[in-house]
Design a protein around this nucleic acid. Structure first.
Lengths: 237, 237
DNA sequence: CGTAAAATTGATATTTCTCAATGAGAGTGG
DNA sequence: CCACTCTCATTGAGAAATATCAATTTTACG
């Protein structure tokens, strides 16, 4: 990845206008706190493909994804990649024990984050247990996703993986933008493969197979769910 | 006839004597708090194979594993099982968002837990942010484990999975009981297979292969690491 | 001991991967 | 506007890893 040309809006943004105000960690703050919080975060933009942070980097900031999609991944020494999740607006990134990030994060398409320096953010949390509780809530939810994903990776067939992915991704988009049977897929086939523990060829073949069976339609930049019930059946719950 | 096993020790136990005092959530409590905490938890014993809680059960308690080993798993509708982790003394179980457990937990061999009713435990946390912080710490650590395990499930070969499992399991035992190249494996081959996303036959064959290559020795109830460096190489970091 | 459960081993089947070629879409410069 | 090139996606054929099915063998336990 190339060096990042980073745009920082000094103090230009107000939390009360923020698109993720009610989704993100900030939902636990009252208006007064929010005004104080505003001074802690800086909006930063990343272009498609840029790396926001890398695994093993010392954690200097936490991030609140405001707009766009990110891939979160880990690499094996020989380059094999496992995507451990896709981040969407409202997701909070950077929590860890070791003081180092335990995965890397790239922008998929343009991305806007609200970046918090670690130390001031830590001090802000200090006497605000409700914020800590909110962060814990997000961590526990992540943990639940992670466990579901382990089941997918360890025990599902390629067809089931793809079907479950489409449904899960749609579900997340639904809760952000409302229901639709058109599912945008901003990530590449390779990303999907690395998320599902498959090869790009297998993902591609599975998409084609689903389309031949009239279950989905592959459209530009995504798919359309022609028969959601059938996809659910294929996903094996 | 021997007296039947007393399952609940009403108030018999004192936290200050507890084996996991410094490992568990309780490590964040001072002596005064600990005395109060004592009245919240009840020691409960489970025999080998018993289920402590099941996925989708409404969460009525949290659990602190005090002694023994548990398997934590999720089932697909058709019975396929994925073990999402093994719990060891000091592990804290029961955190969730939905109010329901998101995995099931069985005893592997005899197990002793410290059980906390959800409501009083919640109230106790309320004005003790340091305890909440400790719980968050454990959740974030779990999350890191979960992500590492996703890499294993999605991107590692059978040999690498087995090797990584042996090393990871040993590592956990080391931090509980000190270093040793003898690695007890209280779980069955089927458990290992369901943890690694393999079949029991593949696990068995891989063990045999490692033994033939002089890398491990299969002993009663576990294995002995004859060549730890070789195992690490096989695990592909 | 004797029986049941767990683990191992072997032979074969299946799924998914690998390697290789082709096709489609986006951006570039002539 | 049209080649040209680059990347990404699709498709095919064959290979490899792991699963499945079927015996044994070993271990655990009453």
């Amino acid at each position: 990845m190339k060096a990042s040309v980073v745009k920082i809006e000094p103090n230009g943004h107000v939390c009360s206008d923020c698109a993720v105000r009610d989704l993100a960690v900030c939902s636990s703050l009252d208006p007064t706190e929010l005004r104080e919080f505003e001074h802690l975060g800086r909006r930063v933009h990343f272009s498609s493909g840029e790396t926001v942070f890398s695994e093993e980097d010392i954690t200097t900031s936490f991030y609140n994804l405001v707009e766009g999609v990110m891939r979160l991944y880990k690499l094996l020494p020989d380059g094999r990649r496992q995507i451990v999740g896709f981040a969407l607006p409202g997701d909070f990134l950077g929590m860890n024990i070791s003081g180092r990030h335990n995965f890397s994060a790239d922008a998929i398409g343009g991305v806007t984050v609200c970046q918090f320096a670690k130390a001031p953010f830590g001090r802000f949390i200090e006497d605000r247990p409700h914020l800590l509780r909110r962060i814990n809530e997000l961590a526990v939810r992540e943990l639940s996703h992670a466990r579901n994903h382990m089941v997918l990776l360890g025990r599902r067939s390629a067809d089931e993986k793809v079907a479950a992915f489409l449904l899960g991704w749609r579900e997340r988009l639904v809760s952000l933008k409302g229901a639709s049977d058109t599912v945008p897929l901003p990530m590449s086939r390779q990303d999907i493969a690395d998320y599902l523990g498959l090869t790009i060829e297998t993902v591609s073949r599975t998409f084609t197979k689903l389309e031949r069976h009239g279950v989905i339609e592959i459209i530009h930049g995504g798919i359309s769910l022609l028969d959601p019930a059938k996809v659910e059946a294929l996903a094996a719950a």
